[in-house]
Design a protein around this nucleic acid. Structure first.
Lengths: 341, 341
DNA sequence: TCGCCCTATGTTATCGCTAACATATTTATT
DNA sequence: AATAAATATGTTAGCGATAACATAGGGCGA
């Protein structure tokens, strides 16, 4: 019984199904949503009719009538940083067990784009919002505040949340790494990172990092920034540049693992003693790293937990349950093979 | 003039704005959509009122009334294979110039999941669908056929498209690589790939590959499959395994660049002469590769073009313009440093 | 056997917006 | 100045579903 071709090319409605099944529209609606009491006989008739016609319900009409939309807006800065697809996949895994569905919006780290994406998404009246970071335009904050749905800001904790927040203190993560580096006796420390003033999390990590160094009376000895291009290549290039310019460096801290991996490969090729002469560390714990000849020291950002917990909060609140307002995760330092211990 | 708090907690409607502005709902609607003639004086009043209230239009109601939804469903198997985020970003770039907006659905390579994701998306009545691959369940095909919207299947060409198709012949790509390898004199060829029967594109590439080898009287000398885990690590492990089991191999073909990169790193560490003693090649041209000590031979899958063209087709058809039904792209062989020439 | 309650179905009235048409009010054209 | 044409606004009637209420039969206890 394959779907019949609809001759009028008019989109199918409940009406078409109810006519074919010989019942009312309401009964069809009940059958297709599995709500209310319907006799087995009618149920079977209706299901058969819907299938025969190839009927696909119109959620737009359904949502308008029921004032319920089972979508969750997930707003992230980028898809090319693997961190975000990973967060997404944990979110999906949790929401798959619920009637909720994630809808992704990408901001490219631009506040104005975030604002427009948010506006667009809120205009579909989602059941909740998961959004990366705590920095938003005033208009964005106002929209989220007045939307009257659960909002979960993720990844970061250093700031003033709108509603719920799940993440780690990026400043503290930076400090933690700095202390570990100092403790191992490294003193002439170089930093490499993205030249992206709008990546607030990287910025805060750097602030925490320099902060802890300062407390130990140490200053960043040299630094280098990049933007765009293949992170692995850039890491390699920046490392070459910085080491040639400041041969005395004994540690290189990278704002992310990808450039760190590039740097590591460069050092290994050059026969530099890692971590003896120069120590290296990145941030994020990307899966990729485990395939390299040496394991880069890094700090796991717990992003699977972040995604999972954020989704759980939305799911709980969507059915009227209580949920935590603030969840702090603790990044774990992984020494790998590039940080003495 | 910050958004006032809505005391009744009743969601704002056009009505609220029109009351405040002292005009009819229709006029507000016209102003906010920028359609029809409205005098500057009224426009200013209305915009001010909307802003003051923090009004966000309800697209659900709008879409139902206008029978227009500016969403494009993009259905892909996975986000963790960087290929798909890259395709997505080209799609977004094109759609950003139009009123259309992409909505992502992920199938995890499961046909049933694809079917349910598709059903879910079609129930929102999108303006078009971009979907990876040509293999779908009968129900999925039926749904797409009767949806009466442009459907663009991407990435692959070997099969029977529902509507439009943009991609490359995966079989031909496999054959092309095989011929290049044979031409350089390699004869004992090992293959490594994912153990994923549902990745039809990888399967077809492999078929094309063995096909071309067979024509030259050569058979795959050994093979190894993996599933799950870090591709880079798996590539390394499989390479070790296969080289120990079949020391006579003079070429290793990987079904994707990530495992290829792992294999390359392994060979370099082992001091194996690449490409003298053993040649290597992967597939996809991921950006990552350019950061490795040697460049892996690969074949660029043209995925930025694929995304761009698919989006252009949808955008053209959405405004009633003609658009190509079939676009074949030709993958470019990149010799890199791991395939003699 | 009466009335009560449960089950299975139908009816009616929105949900918030926009298309299409109707109605002023100006401006242009001859 | 008279009429047509354009501009600016309002009115009405849905879009396709669902919530809430209404109703028709059956079964069952007393």
């Amino acid at each position: 019984m394959s779907p019949q071709h609809n001759p009028a090319k008019r989109p199918l409605t409940l009406r078409d199904v109810s006519d074919l099944a010989g019942v009312s529209e309401m009964t069809v609606s009940r059958v297709l949503r599995g709500r209310g009491d319907v006799s087995d006989a009618t149920r079977i008739k209706v299901v058969a009719a819907a299938k025969q016609l190839g009927y696909v319900p119109n959620k737009i009409a359904g949502a308008l009538a029921s004032q319920r939309v089972n979508l969750v807006a997930v707003i992230i800065p980028s898809l090319s940083n693997m961190v975000f697809p990973e967060v997404m996949s944990s979110i999906s895994k949790v929401l798959d067990e619920t009637p909720l569905q994630p809808v992704i919006g990408v901001t490219n780290y631009l506040p104005e784009k975030e604002e427009s994406v948010l506006f667009e998404m809120l205009s579909w009246r989602p059941s909740g919002v998961i959004i990366a970071g705590l920095e938003h335009t005033d208009a964005s904050r106002a929209m989220m505040r007045s939307a009257d749905i659960p909002i979960v800001e993720i990844m970061d904790l250093d700031g003033d949340p709108i509603d719920a927040v799940v993440g780690l203190s990026q400043r503290r993560a930076g400090r933690k790494m700095a202390r570990a580096i100092i403790k191992q006796g490294y003193r002439k420390i170089g930093f490499m990172g993205t030249n992206m003033p709008l990546d607030h999390r990287a910025r805060k990590r750097f602030e925490g990092f320099t902060d802890a160094l300062a407390k130990a009376g140490i200053e960043i000895a040299d630094q280098e920034y990049y933007c765009g291009g293949s992170a692995l290549v850039k890491g390699r290039e920046m490392t070459k540049t910085i080491l040639e310019r400041s041969p005395g460096l004994d540690f290189l801290y990278y704002s992310n693992d990808m450039i760190g991996a590039g740097g590591l490969l460069y050092c290994l090729e050059q026969g530099i003693d890692v971590p003896g002469k120069v120590g290296l560390a990145g941030f994020n714990g990307v899966e990729l790293l485990s395939g390299l000849p040496k394991h880069l020291a890094t700090m796991d950002a717990e992003r699977h937990d972040i995604g999972r917990i954020a989704a759980e909060i939305i799911a709980a609140r969507a059915i009227g349950q209580e949920a935590p307002q603030r969840v702090e995760l603790t990044p774990k330092l992984q020494f790998g093979d590039t940080l003495k211990r």
